[in-house]
Every structure is written in C-alpha cells, then in structure tokens.
Computed example of a mutant assay.
Amino acid sequence: MIAILIVSWNVRELLRACLGSLQRYPATLHEQRITVVDNASGDGTLEMLRRDFPEVCVVANATNRGFTGGSNDGLRHIAQSATPACVLLLNPDTEVTPGALDALLACAEAHPQAGVIGPQLRYPDGSVQSSRRRFPTFWTALFESTWLQPIAPRAVLDHYYVRDRRDDEACEVDWVVGAAMLVRWEAYRQVGGLDERNFFMYSEELDWCRRIKAAGWQVFYEPRARVVHHEGQSSAQVSAQRMIYFNTSKVRYFAKHHGRVPAGLLRAALLGMFAWQWGLEGAKWLLGHRRALRAERMRAYARVLRSGLR
C-alpha cells in the first residue's frame, strides 16, 4: 500500500485539481490511500473535501501548523492505522501525470536502498522545473535565491542544481524538492519525521533527506515520473512572511549541520542584503518612482529585518 499525504492551506481549487489527478491516474502497483491535513483553511476546503472526496481521510488542524508540522501530523495519523510500503508527500499545488505513481514505486522496488525518490517536476507549460539538488555549501546559500544569484559563479550553482546531469537521466542525488517526494516507510520509522522544532516551512525536506542519507539510505531522482507543480501557491499568500520563513530556515539548517559560526555569517550576510534592498527601495520612493510599490516593499523588508532571521 502507498499512502499519499497532502498538507493544504487555503488552496481549495488547486487541492481539488490535485485530488482529481490522483483519481484519474492512480497507482496500480499498490493500493493507494489519501490523507489530507488541512491547516485551518478559511476558504471552504473542508466542506469541499467532505462533499467531493468522501473517500479521502481528512485531518483538520485547528491552527496553521506549516508544512512541517502538518506533515508530521499526517504521518502520525497514517501510522495509527496502516504500515504502508511508502508514503508520498505531495503539495496541493501539484497534479500527477499518467504513470507517475507507478514509476516512483517501480524505482523503489528496483532500488531497495532508496529511502527517498523524487519525480521530475514540470511547470504548467510543460517545461522542466529544477527539483534535484546536491547539499548546499556556504557559498551556495549566499547566492541561491538572493539578489546575488544573477552574479553567482556558474560552477557554484551548477553543482548545486546538478546541471552536469541531463534532466531525463535517473540518478542518485543528495536531496529532492519536497513538492513531491516518495519516502520509504522503513526509512521514516528509522529517522523519524520532519524537524518541526527548527523548520516551519522551507529546508525541512533538505534536512530530512540529509538525516535519511546519514542513516545509510539513498536518494534518487526518477524522471519517468512526472508531476506538474504550480509552485508556491500557499506561501505566496504572505510574501513578507515567506521571505522570513525561507531565510530563517536556511540559517537554521546551517546552524544545525555546519555550526554556529557559518550560520552567524550567513545570517549577517542575508540581513545585509535585505538592508540594502530596503535602502534601494527607499531611494526610489524619494525619487517618486511608483511610491505605493516602493512603500509596500520597504514594509516587507523591514519585517524581515525586525525578525533578525531567528
């Protein structure tokens, strides 16, 4: 049996499309059971699930527990009633394509030491979305997803994004993006769930894959399994908070796995970038250039600076 776990927050229509794709293209190699953890959505998600998908098991959280806490809630709920071969963590803004689930399961059967398997993610227009990674270095963290990324030395990010391997080439990697990741139940039982003490959202799958690999398992990328990912639809609803979560998680990952000094240097560098961006937006505001936009961005950057990324 394969357990499919979806954590959702205020993306009712995307969740409906995700569940519809699982109905149209189910796993055939194993029975599938779907669990949705709703993180206190206010958009009618629970009513939609009860009306349109009565076969889905629903865990209704009273508060938003984030991707990490919600996933752990779902994993514990699954463990109370079943022992699946694997659990597929799937974002609600994804849609599986024909044969995707069976391709993941076939990869798991072909590689008994695979603790985690990630599919090839696609944008809605059909282009490939980068989803396989090597573990980040300090320099990777400094450049990746910051305003310095366009000037990053090519070798730094090429290594991180595994650009030396073709997109259609199955391979072992260090970690895969958590929008869709198949985890062997035995690996989960061995290392435990996601680290919700350090990560509300972002970097939790990186940390989990690192722990799973440290326990002797492998992580694979399987491009025959394709999943469409609409990317960031929940977190995009709160942009300033998203920046805080993303960068705080990055710093906490480095503190956990590389020590306080690298984490402190990274925090200072990231805060310095946000201070620079705040000043740049302020200068544009003083010049009268799109003042409403500049003020909005200044407020967002100020919130990040006040957080201290801690």
Rank of each mutant, 00 (worst) to 15 (best):
Y161Q: 03
P112N: 00
L286T: 11
P223D: 15
D158I: 04
W208A: 09
I212E: 03
P124C: 12
F274E: 11
L182R: 06
V176G: 02
L287V: 01
A103P: 03
V191Q: 04
V228A: 06
F138N: 04
W276C: 10
P150W: 13
M181W: 02
A103W: 08
S8Q: 11
A3T: 11
P150D: 09
D195P: 01
F67I: 13
S21N: 10
S81R: 15
M48T: 11
A225N: 09
K284A: 03
S234L: 13
V156A: 01
E281F: 04
L266H: 05
F67E: 14
G126P: 01
L157I: 15
L5F: 04
R303W: 14
W185G: 04
A3K: 10
V238R: 13
C171Y: 14
L29D: 02
G115M: 11
T140C: 15
G259E: 07
A108F: 05
A155M: 11
G232S: 10
A60N: 12
F220S: 00
L89N: 15
V58R: 06
C57H: 12
L194R: 04
R16A: 15
A170T: 07
R133I: 07
G178A: 08
A283C: 01
D125P: 00
D195C: 04
R132F: 04
H159A: 01
A300G: 08
D93A: 09
L266D: 02
T83N: 14
A215F: 15
A110L: 11
G118V: 04
L270M: 01
G259S: 06
V251P: 01
Q149S: 07
P26K: 13
R226L: 09
R189V: 00
A82W: 15
F135C: 01
W217F: 13
V36I: 12
G216V: 05
A187L: 07
Y301H: 15
R297D: 08
R184W: 14
V116G: 00
V36A: 05
